[in-house]
Design a protein around this nucleic acid. Sequence first.
DNA 1: CCAGCAGAGTTGTCACTTCAACTCCTGCCG
DNA 2: CGGCAGGAGTTGAAGTGACAACTCTGCTGG
Lengths: 162, 162
Amino acid sequence: MTETRSLEPEEWEFWDTWMRAQRLLTRELERGLQRDCDISKAEFSLLVTLWQAGGREMRVGELSESLDWDKSRVSHQLTRMERRGFVKRTQYGADGRRAGVGLTAEGRRAARSAILVHGDNVRRHFLDPLTPEQTSVIRAWSKQTVARLEPHHNEAAADDAS
Amino acid sequence: MTETRSLEPEEWEFWDTWMRAQRLLTRELERGLQRDCDISKAEFSLLVTLWQAGGREMRVGELSESLDWDKSRVSHQLTRMERRGFVKRTQYGADGRRAGVGLTAEGRRAARSAILVHGDNVRRHFLDPLTPEQTSVIRAWSKQTVARLEPHHNEAAADDAS
DNA sequence: CCAGCAGAGTTGTCACTTCAACTCCTGCCG
DNA sequence: CGGCAGGAGTTGAAGTGACAACTCTGCTGG
């Protein structure tokens, strides 16, 4: 352990600028989603995940896993979106079992349109301004960061007897 | 109509990975702050901004400008932090005027320690894993993004007599 | 003079997020 | 059989963030 000194001003400024950039970008995109599609980023994520499942219903745990959201967060979000008529919870087994989650017709419509609109916004605000070099560097950094921090990354290549 | 098409799968995955990376990183850092210093990211930002002002009191509008936060957000956050004893609001003029905001002794202590701890975490989770190439590319991207999206960008380099 | 407009700050409301406590069911094990 | 550990999902409380309505004061123009 070397000395536990604070960041150099230059490092601090780098960090601050990075945080600012990413906050501005996500805020811009969230506003676009709200303005053009009248849905929030959280709603969008859930709609897309269910959309990608095709017609198949998903369980709360699956959604939680796939989005890397806390289960209670999924549950709260589902409650709000059920109120808005985007999703429905159905019973899983005959005798009062776990709930499955699916899109309503309204939810499918919202998902389809939001994917197009949001895709455009992502392109305009994120992809297009990137140079090819920036694209490849940032892509690599993103992958490496996810690999480093993603909690369930237990794909051990070795034999796994447990 | 090919012009307004959705993102290609590869583009979508890039975007998704990037969002995930940045969310994982900020979440990790926020947890560190909470665990080691018992303060939130929002509290940290406000503490640091006031800390950097030296002993000088700041106005709400200044904080709002400097952090690029909504004024109401600053006000709400100040209310919570006043409750925790980190900041105090003082009167500005004699006859019930605008409030100035300053750190309490408790707030200064929290700021000092959080800056050290958080600096370490930023270094460990963000700065250290970057290659020199990634550092320079991401720094450039951040600056360019902030310049593009920052609302008030009227910093004329010339001296400002007003 | 005073009506009203503009700026600073606050408050309210609603949605989002996290954490912990809770319910309900299932499977296990004595 | 009976109970209990544990997983799935929900609920509640508190903090966070965005937006709009509101208060208060000073300024300004008719």
